[in-house]
């Protein structure tokens, strides 16, 4: 097992069929892919392609990788009924998330400012010519999908039995080192030392969204990074945490955020149209609800 730092989190590579040296080489390749993605899609690096796009005053010639990501983002906006929307970049800044996150680094004594409404539908994508036209009031933030997308991309470079975990967004290839599945502990959002349920996962990805870690003080209130596109403010929801099991980490990451923002009732309705998706909902009372195709570990 090899650990490295990327995208502000710990990335773990576990490839039990490889030698120690082979696993280290695979982890180095994973690290390079994360570094490339971060250099292109980071909102906080002024030289990143996304930062340049957010500063562009006219049609922006995007790279094929950027165009592909934006095209997928458009499809996810439709899939989630607008609960995922990469046009929340301005709202993120207004809420205080204007630099790389570290505990306490974003705390402010003043309350958050109101964010101008923005929708990704206002952005024009010319897929044939590779051009993006962004209205001045729209700031794009792809942080809600790029980590999962990079996990998917990097996992394809690993052996058939391997796990790639990027801060809780994980791709789990094959049936695990012992052939009976990968055991995935779903953390208790109220007490990170505890586990609410352990899932058995085979050839799937998992992702979890909650507001218990990436949060900061704004005046007398807490703010967090899960912005509701409908309000432009950190989502106020009856859910404390959402975990999604899907075929791809990108889809799991986006659906986890969308269901979290939607809340339990609307989240169930969204998941009802996605029968291949499994979900673990934890509300603020600590009640756990399992939805869809999930396998719970026998010793859980």
């Amino acid at each position: 097992m090899v650990e490295l730092r990327a995208m502000g989190t710990t990335v773990t590579v576990h490839a039990p069929t490889l030698s120690v040296e082979g696993e280290a080489a695979a982890a180095a390749e994973v690290g390079a892919l994360f570094a490339t993605a971060e250099a292109r899609f980071s909102r906080f690096r002024p030289d990143s392609e996304l930062a340049q796009l957010n500063c562009a005053t006219g049609p922006f010639a995007a790279s094929p990788a950027m165009m592909a990501a934006l095209a997928r983002a458009r499809a996810y906006v439709e899939l989630t009924g607008g609960r995922f929307d990469p046009a929340v970049g301005g709202a993120m800044i207004a809420a205080g998330y204007d630099r790389g996150f570290a505990p306490g680094a974003l705390d402010r004594a003043t309350a958050a400012a109101a964010a101008p409404p923005a929708r990704f539908a206002d952005v024009t994508l010319d897929l044939e010519r590779g051009l993006v036209v962004r209205p001045p009031h729209v700031q794009l933030d792809l942080g809600g999908m790029i980590k999962g997308a990079t996990v998917d991309l990097a996992a394809r470079h690993l052996p058939e039995i391997a796990a790639l975990d990027a801060g809780g967004d994980a791709a789990l290839r094959g049936a695990g080192p012992e052939g009976d599945g990968w055991y995935v502990d779903v953390e208790d959002p109220a007490d990170p030392s505890r586990v609410v349920v352990t899932l058995v996962v085979r050839d799937r990805a998992v992702a979890t969204s909650a507001a218990n870690r990436r949060r900061w003080r704004r005046g007398d209130a807490w703010a967090h990074h899960l912005i509701d596109p409908a309000t432009g403010a950190p989502a106020a929801t009856d859910l404390a945490q959402v975990t999604i099991v899907a075929h791809r980490a990108e889809r799991a990451e986006i659906l986890a955020k969308a269901v979290f923002i939607a809340g339990a009732r609307a989240g169930r309705a969204l998941l009802a149209n996605l029968p291949t998706i499994g979900a673990v909902l934890v509300d603020h009372r600590g009640d756990v609800e399992l939805i869809g195709p999930l396998e719970v570990a026998p010793d859980a």
Partner: peptide, 9 residues
């Protein structure tokens, strides 16, 4: 047994 922990990051 290797266990993966999923959480918000």
């Amino acid at each position: 047994r290797v266990r993966v922990r999923t959480r918000s990051s």
